[in-house]
Design a binder for these strands. Structure first.
Lengths: 172, 172
DNA sequence: GTCCGCATGTAAGAAGTTACATGATTCT
DNA sequence: AGAATCATGTAACTTCTTACATGCGGAC
């Protein structure tokens, strides 16, 4: 369902696009929000067209198909945004590793936390490169802000957890 | 893979347990970290036993099977904790909704953000009920702290986004 | 004795990943 | 002519969700 919504959202916000275009947008503007490769996107677009949510507006070179959102599609998107209360499906490899890290020897646990911290810092830098959400406009702004805060929070958590682990001398 | 790791982690940390016990632990101690129902857990346990990572240590009443982690299982768990760098698979319905919310009319977007804020506050209360991670011991402590910080961050984000939306009068 | 919680499973389908496969166009 | 990029698809497999199905044991 969410993939479908993401595609409808992109078509609604940026206008007609091909599967290829949409795949690129997943790699760029949607990268920190939702993930999907072309092998998932192409079949989904076909199903959405069959369901009347989008239509092939034009066919370009190399068999390129340009999809447009239909009124039905806009409806479905609107209904989801207004009516769907998203659940934070708790399935995070990072949290799982954090959960289990205390099973390790203290030095090993420390190394794991340090590695995580480095990952978070890298992620934070990447998101900050995308621009300052306060000065940005349009759709994507709130999500970028959320991503940056998330990364910052994670760096802080890792820093404090490392300090805690060192202070306790591993006596968790 | 991660489900397997989570199961190995529980067996390693809390000792022998049945599929039923493990399912309960997913509902309680692991609830904010990883999600899985019994219909996923039972077949996975069978596969893990076939792979030699766990064994049936005893059979109790009602066909209850008590699994224990084997040295091979401990090995696999250790290797994952030390060697696997978890990727933050970006797939969050919440971020997606935040991303697309500016497509809505301002009042509608506001309602969506308010609803999210309420959800985060509820989640924060739930996690705080589980105890103060600073005073807690053992495995699970760091993950709980992470969860609480996450929820707090999200409440702050929603609050600020609502204020921003109100200030801009919807002129995103 | 019947209801509730314990306890285990299967099946069908949706969603996501990785790899395979193919052909057109543009650039050098 | 060859390489890179555009552009679309399929297939096999893993993971996850929802629903169906069954039976034991203890409490009242």
């Amino acid at each position: 369902m969410s993939l479908r919504i993401a595609l409808l959202g992109l078509l609604s916000a940026s206008g007609p696009a091909s599967g290829y275009d949409l795949t690129k947008k997943f790699e760029t503007s949607l990268a920190h929000v939702w993930q999907a490769g072309h092998s998932q996107i192409y079949p989904e677009l076909a199903k959405m067209a069959a369901d009347g949510l989008i239509t092939v507006e034009a066919e370009g070179a190399r068999g390129r198909k340009i999809y447009t959102i239909t009124p039905d599609g806009r409806d479905a998107l609107h209904r989801w945004l207004v009516g769907h209360s998203p659940s934070a499906v708790p399935r995070s490899e990072i949290a799982l590793q954090a959960f289990l890290a205390p099973l390790l020897e203290p030095e090993e646990a420390l190394a794991v936390l340090e590695r995580m911290k480095a990952t978070f810092e890298e992620r934070l830098r990447e998101l900050e490169r995308l621009g300052d959400p306060r000065s940005k406009k349009g759709y994507g702004k709130y999500a970028l802000d959320l991503g940056i805060r998330q990364a910052r929070m994670a760096v802080g958590w890792a820093t404090d957890s490392i300090a805690d682990l060192k202070a306790s001398g591993g006596a968790v």
